[in-house]
Design a protein around this nucleic acid. Structure first.
Lengths: 241, 241
DNA sequence: TAGTGGTCTAGACCACTAG
DNA sequence: TAGTGGTCTAGACCACTAG
């Protein structure tokens, strides 16, 4: 009906794979055979195979054929943003201070900069219902004449702070997610006890050449924090109809 | 040279977007105009646009044109597997017990089953260097004649346990990641103190109709646990060359 | 050498948008 | 009504695989 031919082929192949009729590693019919089976042109068959490949169902080996993929069980989509991963979103941010400092070894390592380079340190507290819920520290390599406008830093996420001019498309990011006992500094800033667990999320920003352009950690009080992720194998065809 | 025409168009458009020449929301040239610009057929231009769209750079509005997307800052790819998210991978698993029980309210809610239904509870401990590092509890709706082979459960991940026959392609998964103070049970099983923070990861498995087919939580001792995620905007064209 | 997937062309018809 | 993207065709030539 409204559904184009290439999508009915996609659904047909998915059904065969989901039912186990085609198993991981199996070679599927050749493109020309599929043309005959469905009575369509090769470009239409190839469109279907492109969709199946983009959703991870199949892969192709030039000269040989198309094969059913191993389902990637361990892959998830995660949404994170230091400003909205709190149970109820952040109402207020307090900018503690912005300083230009000599980097520690840890900072040198994470930003991959020479020893003599200075870094900008931005410290913020996220506040919810009047109480601190997260403590945020960010390090950015400092260059002469770098504009530091405190107002702009207040509510900005890390990529927004670093990528003032640069297109956000060009920034790659890495997250490290871990639990930790609060140290003295964190206990003081967040006003918590030894038994209050803290979620530490490290963010590293990289430019298009994988050079670090920013590094930082956000410490969330456990009670206010959780992350959600979904398997990346949800049937994306739902978005097409 | 070896690089096909459609990829040089892709790189060209990416460069324009990364440089800010084309900004989010901007309409790009029409497909026919691009055909003239690059002196190629429309199918080749469309192949390029398909690649750009699949990588999130652009989207199309039929009847109007193609537009530059807002970069999705918050989207990450996360890899998780209760068996290998430990600093050093798990050497040993101890199956504490497998029982068939009356579900609690929490289990009823998460598995979306009627009150009179029974559930299988599987409790395991992950062991590293002789010490427990994680405590794992899984709930699966029980049906008459369900085979429960303890040997098969020992080292299997959750999807493997639930999806005995079913294709792994058909399973969707949801993760909830949170920090918590260890309760009495967790302290006893993992042999830890009140000040030892625990990472709790909830896993929910859903079939193709979004019906829950399994639910569980794994409690990791903080010291042995971390997750890593990368932004999903890494230039996938690297995989093509 | 026959078969495979990868790229590309020059057309066609369609529904939709917006003046 | 002119322009847009969406689908589809029937061809072509290519590099690569494997007997």
């Amino acid at each position: 009906m409204g559904s184009p031919i290439y999508l009915t082929i996609v659904e047909d192949m998915k059904q065969k794979i989901n039912a186990g009729e085609l198993k991981p590693g199996d070679m599927i019919k050749s493109e020309n055979t599929l043309c005959d089976d469905y009575n369509v042109s090769r470009m239409t068959v190839r469109k279907s195979l492109t969709v199946l490949a983009s959703e991870g169902y199949i892969y192709s080996v030039p000269g040989k054929g198309n094969f059913v993929n191993e389902p990637n069980q361990d892959k998830y989509i995660l949404y994170f943003n230091e400003m909205n991963s709190i149970e109820s979103s952040i109402e207020e941010t307090e900018l503690l201070d912005v300083n230009i400092v000599k980097p520690t070894l840890e900072i040198l390592f994470n930003l991959q900069i020479p020893e003599n380079k200075r870094v900008v340190v931005i410290r913020r507290i996220m506040i919810n219902d009047g109480d601190p819920v997260a403590y945020d520290i960010k390090y950015i390599p400092y260059y002469r004449g770098m504009p530091i406008v405190e107002k702009e830093i207040h509510y900005a996420t890390f990529p927004e702070i670093v990528a003032k001019k640069k297109s956000l498309f060009a920034i790659n990011k890495e997250l490290k997610i871990r639990v930790q006992r609060p140290d003295a500094e964190i206990k003081a800033v967040l006003n918590i006890e030894d038994t209050d667990p803290v979620m530490a999320i490290e963010q590293k920003l990289l430019d298009e050449n994988s050079k670090p352009i920013g590094w930082g950690v956000t410490y969330f009080i456990g009670d206010f924090f959780h992350l959600q992720a979904v398997s990346s194998f949800v049937d994306k065809s739902n978005n097409i109809y």
